[in-house]
Amino acid sequence: MLRKIENKNMGRSNLGWLQSVFHFSFAEYYNPDNINFGVLRVINDDLVQANTGFDTHPHRDMEIVSYVVEGELTHGDNMGNKKTLTRGSVQYMSAGTGVYHSEHNFGNKTLRFLQIWILPDKEGYKPNYGDHEFQWNDRRNKWLHMVSSKEGNAPVKINQDINIYSLQLDKGNESSLPVKEGRQAYLVQIEGSAEVNNIKLDDRDAMEIVEEDILIEAKEISHILVLEMKKQD
């Protein structure tokens, strides 16, 4: 099963310093038919203006992954972590029993990043932070496995049975990905345009995939993110 989600039908918010596209219900955007996709609870496509950001605030019992698309993302938290990440890098935080953190753009151009919230496999984990600076070419015309469960083999490991892959596919190139029985996936066309099993996706569109292998053909240079997970009934 494949279901295309056009970005024009997603939720939106404009606070001036922050412009967001909401893939799922979040903040002032609420759709009772669009709360989550399996354990995937939030994908916010955020544009953060220079010298602004999210001041210190709390979270608990959520696995939070940030994927930097453009610009600089600077993280700070009450565990003593501080790091600035750039395009193609991943930041991970297990909020667990409770954590305070901030996310800012101290650069001189707009920051774009995907803020991803994943439900953990249980509550009450000890809070944890990690990040990884991937080389951009590691995803050029091949899948880069960035995030996995603790039992998986990706550089970033979280408390849930989910895999996150990124891909830059050059125009005219193809790449396939299996979504096996008992599994489902959520695909984000971050940049560019492509066809997924002959269904056209444009910049910022998305697709739900359930138990169906996909073949992607880039119509122009395409930057894609896929979150593959256990199927939820």
Rank of each mutant, 00 (worst) to 15 (best):
I5Y: 14
I5F: 11
N7W: 07
K8Y: 14
M10C: 11
G11R: 01
R12N: 10
G16I: 10
W17E: 06
W17A: 08
F22T: 04
H23E: 13
F24H: 04
F26L: 05
A27I: 03
E28I: 02
N31R: 11
N34R: 10
I35R: 12
I35N: 02
F37A: 06
V39K: 09
R41C: 03
N44K: 07
N44H: 06
D45R: 01
D45Y: 05
D46A: 09
L47R: 11
Q49H: 12
A50L: 08
N51L: 05
F54L: 10
H57F: 07
H59L: 10
R60L: 05
R60S: 15
D61F: 06
M62A: 11
I64E: 00
I64M: 03
V65S: 00
V68D: 01
V69M: 13
V69S: 07
K82Y: 03
K82F: 02
K82C: 05
K83T: 10
T84F: 08
T84N: 02
L85I: 11
L85W: 00
T86P: 01
R87L: 07
V90H: 00
Q91H: 03
S94G: 08
S94Y: 01
A95S: 12
A95Y: 12
T97M: 09
G98S: 15
V99K: 03
V99W: 04
H101V: 10
H104A: 12
F106A: 04
N108Y: 11
K109L: 03
L111V: 07
R112Y: 04
W117A: 01
I118C: 09
K126G: 01
N128G: 04
G130W: 00
D131C: 02
E133Q: 15
W136R: 11
N137F: 08
N137L: 08
R139M: 14
R140S: 09
L144D: 00
V147Y: 01
E151A: 13
G152W: 03
A154G: 07
D161P: 02
I162R: 00
Y165K: 03
Y165C: 03
S166G: 14
L167A: 11
L169Q: 04
G172L: 13
G172F: 05
G172I: 09
N173H: 12
S175P: 01
S176E: 14
S176K: 15
L177K: 13
L177F: 15
P178M: 06
G182R: 10
L187E: 08
V196Y: 09
V196A: 13
N197A: 08
N197H: 08
N198H: 09
L201S: 09
L201P: 02
D202S: 15
D203E: 15
R204V: 06
M207T: 12
E208R: 11
E211R: 14
E211K: 06
D213Q: 06
L215I: 15
K219H: 07
K219M: 14
I221F: 03
I221Q: 02
I221A: 07
H223D: 14
I224P: 00
L227Y: 05
E228Y: 03
M229R: 00
Q232D: 09
Q232L: 10
Q232H: 11
Q232F: 11
D233F: 07
